[in-house]
Amino acid sequence: MQRSDESEQSVDDLLAEVEGLTEGDARSEARRQSADRGSSDASAASTSRQSSLRARLGGLFSLRTFLVALVLSVVAVVAGGLVPLVGFVGRLVGLFVVAFAIGLVGRERHYVEVGLAGALASGMGFVVGTLTSAFFPFAVRLLSEYGVAIAGVGAGVGALAALVGHYFGRDLRDGVTRDL
């Protein structure tokens, strides 16, 4: 049987090798060297793994940007839905404008945050719009049968409108800030 120290060290070595393959930077090399030296301090290893995970996710998803985009998207969906006779199109135009503004103002790309916020806001807007646009008992029955499909279509169309808006906002920002 192996001692518990040996099994922990082999797990640390394996984790260091996996991080070295996925990251490929100086920090992973330093971790690999410290693991090779026999460093078996479990708390230090878990802290470095947590900070590494935060660093990887920090560049991919920003919670603050997502919350701002979600609030602005909900406001755009409500404001666009208030326009008579073009409520559905007004919602999508509102999402496009919000995503365009975030793309124009932001220094970094936020496609994930803007797309998710647009999908959530539009999906909720479709469901609430179905409840308020038809006779209530009929709307409840319609949502009980087709609610997931209605929310899914709303989320898909909203995500598409938000992503296209963000793309055009980023494109305009790139054109305005590029040196001639």
Rank of each mutant, 00 (worst) to 15 (best):
R54D: 12
L160D: 03
Q9S: 13
R170I: 06
L131E: 05
D5K: 04
D5S: 13
E113V: 03
A162T: 02
S51H: 08
L160P: 02
G20V: 06
E108N: 13
F88C: 02
S144L: 15
A149R: 04
G154V: 03
V89W: 07
S144N: 12
V97F: 05
G106H: 07
D36G: 08
L53E: 11
F135I: 06
A35V: 12
P84S: 14
G90N: 05
S48H: 08
V153F: 07
T132A: 09
V83C: 03
S122M: 03
P137T: 14
S39K: 07
L85S: 10
A76L: 00
E8P: 06
A45W: 13
D12Y: 08
R170F: 05
G118M: 02
L172Q: 10
S10V: 11
Y167M: 12
V68L: 01
E8I: 10
R27D: 14
L67C: 08
A69K: 01
L60C: 06
G94Y: 01
A69P: 01
V128Q: 03
M124F: 05
S7M: 14
H110M: 07
F100E: 00
V89G: 05
V176C: 07
V89P: 01
L92P: 03
V89A: 15
F126S: 03
Y167F: 14
A139I: 09
A44C: 05
R3M: 14
L21H: 10
M1F: 10
L60W: 13
D174P: 02
G106C: 09
L67F: 06
A101L: 04
F135Y: 13
V176K: 06
F126H: 01
A26V: 08
G81N: 02
H166R: 11
S39L: 13
L67A: 12
Q2A: 15
T130I: 04
V105M: 04
G81A: 09
F135Q: 09
S40D: 14
V68Y: 00
G152A: 09
L143W: 09
P137L: 14
F135G: 03
L131I: 08
G90L: 01
V78C: 02
S48W: 06
P137M: 15
I150P: 03
G94W: 00
T130R: 03
T130E: 11
A99F: 00
T132M: 07
L172D: 06
A117S: 11
S52L: 14
F126Q: 01
D41L: 10
R173A: 14
G169M: 06
S39H: 13
Q50E: 12
Y146D: 11
R56S: 14
E145G: 10
S28D: 10
S43N: 11
R109Q: 14
